[in-house]
């Protein structure tokens, strides 16, 4: 129900990145990025390798905290609250902000247990709730029909594309508000990629999605907005149509026309 309410009035600056800089030890990966990501839209982060797009994404649920020797300046606000506020509990933050990784990474458990992992760690073990969650999440991830007869088989028995969809099902099982996707199709073949893209589009209404991608077509096909990052700086950010058809910056144009990558 809550998603319907929020659908009525999507907040335009649901995620606010404010003068954000980020360092891995001595190396600065992000320079003063400032952007607002609206609710219930798909925002694509594009740019050449090492431009900082993944780093930016991984800061949105503080996954970079797990890395040793990192440091940041500026702030990221989620619905107005700083992620770095002392009162923020990282674990509950990560429950709000789900994540799908570049390489599909199901646990060495059954399909069923993979999906309900986030509920289990939250101590929710009611059979009915778990069953419902599994079906809903797998349906949302367009995987239900393929796996409904073997929910208790190992997740490793699935194909790569199925495993990635399982990871998406796992990420949305606890109904996060935001879904971060770090090149979700990088390890998949074109057919599986297509399926994931379709899935992402259908998820749009319910989740705010930030997706990192190397694939220009994917950005144009799926996203509402596109941000182009280069050398840790935000070069251009706007509606996808505008960025691709009428880029304001020369660097953006060079990149999307394939003059450098």
């Amino acid at each position: 129900m809550s998603s319907e309410i929020s659908k009525k009035q999507p907040r335009p600056d649901f995620i606010r990145v404010e003068d954000f800089s980020f360092h891995y030890g001595e190396k600065q990966a992000i320079f003063d990025i400032d952007m607002a990501i609206p609710e219930n839209e798909i925002t694509a982060l594009i740019g050449p390798s090492g431009c900082g797009k993944s780093t930016l994404l991984r800061n949105m649920n503080r996954m970079n905290d797990l890395i040793d020797g990192v440091r940041h300046e500026g702030d990221i606000r989620l619905d107005g609250v700083s992620l770095y506020d002392p009162s923020v509990e990282v674990i509950s933050l990560r429950k709000r902000v789900g994540m799908v990784f570049q390489k599909y990474n199901p646990f060495a458990k059954s399909i069923y247990e993979n999906v309900v992992f986030s509920l289990r760690v939250a101590g929710r073990n009611g059979k009915k709730e778990l069953d419902e969650t599994v079906e809903r999440s797998l349906r949302d991830a367009a995987l239900w029909d393929e796996v409904k007869d073997r929910l208790h088989d190992s997740a490793f028995g699935l194909s790569g594309g199925q495993q990635q969809r399982l990871c998406i099902a796992r990420a949305i099982a606890n109904r996060p508000e935001i879904l971060l996707m770090d090149e979700p199709c990088a390890a998949l073949d074109p057919l599986a990629t297509l399926k994931i893209e379709e899935l992402i589009t259908t998820l749009k209404n319910r989740y705010t999605i930030v997706i990192v991608t190397h694939n220009m077509e994917q950005a144009t096909r799926c996203s509402d907005r596109t941000a182009f990052l280069y050398m840790g700086k935000l070069i251009e950010y706007g509606k996808t149509v505008q960025v691709f058809e009428n880029p304001k910056e020369e660097q953006t144009e060079s990149y999307i026309t394939g003059r450098f990558s």
Binding site: I91, S92, F101
Partner: peptide, 15 residues
């Protein structure tokens, strides 16, 4: 243990 697994678990809200 592969970092992507522990990261996945952390991202799913496991302490």
């Amino acid at each position: 243990v592969p970092k992507n697994l522990t990261a996945a678990a952390s991202a799913l809200g496991a302490n």
